[in-house]
């Protein structure tokens, strides 16, 4: 399903729109405190921008921007940021995910430390959701065999 599209208009317009979509996704993550939004929604918007890139340009041309190994790493790192924030509170003699303890290293009062803890957690959720959504889309739309992998396999077989 993911092949290079031939329509110049769609390719050019999506090329110009993608940075704005990504910035909007980051805005939704960062301003989850003041307006509707947060890690899940922003992560999904970021993932949607990458999916648009894949659909408009095809996997072959876009794979330098969406490397599938990095997606797996990112989904792990997102969960790690979440759990790591909780564990940091544990190290600072608090309960697990008790962000008020972060005030000791951030030099603020407890309420603002909690706010910053929420922000870091949201960033972790956003990374995980973005990576997982793009990864699921890649798996489902290609059926598991990424385009271009087949030829490489044949090449290595011939060399062997």
């Amino acid at each position: 399903m993911i092949y290079r599209g031939e329509d110049i208009i769609i390719r050019t317009i999506s090329r110009m729109l993608i940075p704005f979509i990504q910035l909007y996704g980051l805005y939704v993550i960062m301003h989850g405190h003041y307006s509707p939004g947060g890690g899940f929604q922003g992560g999904v918007i970021l993932g949607a921008s990458l999916i648009l890139l894949l659909l408009a340009y095809g996997y072959q041309d876009a794979k330098s921007r969406v490397p599938e190994k990095l997606l797996t790493v990112f989904s792990g790192v997102g969960v790690f940021i979440y759990a790591g924030t909780g564990f940091l509170c544990l190290v600072l003699l608090g309960n697990f995910l008790d962000y008020a303890m972060l005030a000791k290293i951030l030099h603020t009062d407890a309420a603002h430390a909690r706010s910053l803890g929420i922000l870091s957690v949201e960033i972790g959720v956003g990374m995980a959701v973005m990576a997982v959504m793009v990864s699921i889309f890649l798996d489902i739309s290609t059926g598991g065999v990424l385009p271009g992998e087949e030829e490489e396999k044949q090449k290595t077989a011939e060399e062997a």
């Binding site: 899940f40 918007i45 993932g47 999916i51």
Partner: peptide, 21 residues
């Protein structure tokens, strides 16, 4: 907001991809 971005966006894309496959 979540429904609009997650379910109506990514969910439909996944369905279409799977049906095409």
């Amino acid at each position: 907001f979540t429904e609009a971005s997650v379910s109506a966006g990514i969910g439909t894309i996944l369905f279409v991809a799977a049906v095409m496959k």
